[in-house]
Design a protein around this nucleic acid. Sequence first.
DNA 1: CCCTATGTTCAATGTTTATTGAACTATCAA
DNA 2: TTGATAGTTCAATAAACATTGAACATAGGG
Lengths: 125, 125
Amino acid sequence: MSRTPHHPTREQIELPMVLDCLSDPIRLAIVYQLAQQERVSSELRCSDFSALSGKSNLAYHFAKLRDCGLMRTRVAGTNRFMRLRREDLEARFPGLLDVVLSSAAKDADRLPLVSGCELVEVDRK
Amino acid sequence: MSRTPHHPTREQIELPMVLDCLSDPIRLAIVYQLAQQERVSSELRCSDFSALSGKSNLAYHFAKLRDCGLMRTRVAGTNRFMRLRREDLEARFPGLLDVVLSSAAKDADRLPLVSGCELVEVDRK
DNA sequence: CCCTATGTTCAATGTTTATTGAACTATCAA
DNA sequence: TTGATAGTTCAATAAACATTGAACATAGGG
């Protein structure tokens, strides 16, 4: 098992892959949730997304989100901490992430986005 | 054969479907080309995209672009005229189309976008 | 050292996707 | 009516995708 998962460089981030990643409701919800908590803590653990799907299915989606450059995974003990690659995304495709996030927010009732009540739960790493 | 192809209403346009549609390089190129010529004429025929793929494959992609609400097809004789549903897209997801188009423009060298020389060809319907 | 918690990897499954060419439909023009 | 033009529909195919559960790996706590 590779110590640190693979991440593309900023320049390797491709528009079609990013759009394809965001087009899956579960992945969109993951990105949305990461963005939501960004002000609280920029990182979330895999288990914080357990409302969205099972563990192995989430691992699959996390890998896709990493591969397309949308998020970065940091290994810390038995936990993996994920965060959005905001700066890289903004450098490659200015405004894209924010527009997609606000579009998702607008349609929050139609998408399987997790309720904002997660904000109550303080992270205690 | 239905006289007029099916189009979703503005409210039926869904974010994941739109992003998925835009994530395919050929469809992104179609949308890009439609946007490019918008100042010349807001409509293009199927055959104007023949550089991107074969006829039947294009018909498949056109159907997807219609189904997700990105473009509208008008039947006129033996021709079909396509145009972007800019207003509807803007109403549903403000800024999304423009950001995707400018992101595509930034990566024009990496994408199979048709060269701008098509602008020379005046439409003579 | 075991036990548990966290997450990944693998194999299997069924679905959707993109692509091709052939057949088809419809319109226009001679 | 004949022929050409413009595009759709269909069937077949191969690849990619999402989902599941089981097996595995790793780290931390008693």
